[in-house]
Amino acid sequence: MNKNIKLMIILLVPIILSLIEWHISFSTIFVIVSMILLYILIGCKEFAYKNKYTKIIYKIYRGIMILFISTFIFLEGAIIINMYRTKDVNSIDNNINTMIILGAKVNKDGVSKTLKLRLDKAIEYYNIKKNINIIVSGGQGCDEISTEALAMKNYLIKNGVPKNKIIMENKATTTLENIVFSKRIIENRNLKGKVLIVTSDYHLFRGQFISSILGIDNEGLCSISPLSGRIYYMIREYSTSVIDLYKSLKISFNS
């Protein structure tokens, strides 16, 4: 069998699996495009070296692909390491005075499964340290019945967290805005001490590096997502992390 055909069959496997599991979605398209780019990188090498001009183009392309692959591996590795380092409430520093719970989708029946997992992890920590301030951060999307902050507040109160411990940030529509707007609340209320960022496993690394860039002394605590959903969102995290890194640095330099 021709080696290019073998390569094509190998690269088709993740494409087929992603289509079966996630249908047509951002992560599926990302996988498809990535496999096509890998096929060009590996399968077209011999053709590219037959001409000096195509050889130059191929070397530039190879450099870009090496950068893409290495940064993707670095990010996914950082997410996985951070996930296992921050899943246990008992490993959190005692010098935490404020908790920021990052919002997620709200359904017509209330908080989504993803958001419920985040809130349950936050409650788990609250039951250890009762004197913590809790900022619930999230605005209202066009398909949501209320702000994420209000839905989170109602869920926390229903599960034993006193109303006076909860501070709502109900304007944010992105992770970056979650952190920026929550930071304003922390500064306006003169809340001292380290901040605990609470979100999903795949999302925590981004939440923490945004917080660190913006000058928030923080630790992280993550809820654990189902495997398929975790992989799906970890793939999405690559592009959103690159965008938020740029935007966070821009805000930091301009402040």
Rank of each mutant, 00 (worst) to 15 (best):
K3F: 13
K6P: 04
I10W: 11
I16V: 15
S18H: 07
E21S: 15
H23E: 12
F26D: 00
V31S: 04
I32E: 00
Y39M: 02
I40D: 01
I42G: 02
I42D: 00
I42R: 02
Y49T: 10
Y53R: 11
I56K: 13
K59Y: 13
K59G: 01
I60C: 14
Y61P: 07
G63N: 13
I64A: 13
F68R: 03
S70G: 05
I73S: 11
E76S: 13
E76I: 13
G77Q: 06
I79Y: 06
I79W: 08
N95T: 09
I96C: 08
M99K: 05
M99Q: 04
G103S: 08
A104L: 08
K105V: 05
D109Y: 11
V111A: 11
L115Y: 10
K116V: 01
D120G: 05
K121F: 06
K121I: 04
Y125M: 02
N127M: 12
N133D: 10
A149F: 03
L150S: 10
N154G: 02
L156N: 05
K158A: 12
N164E: 14
E169R: 06
K171Y: 11
T174W: 05
N178G: 05
I179Y: 06
K183F: 09
N188K: 15
R189L: 15
K194A: 00
F209A: 01
S211N: 01
L214H: 09
L214W: 10
I224R: 08
S239E: 10
T240G: 06
T240Q: 07
I251F: 11
N254D: 11
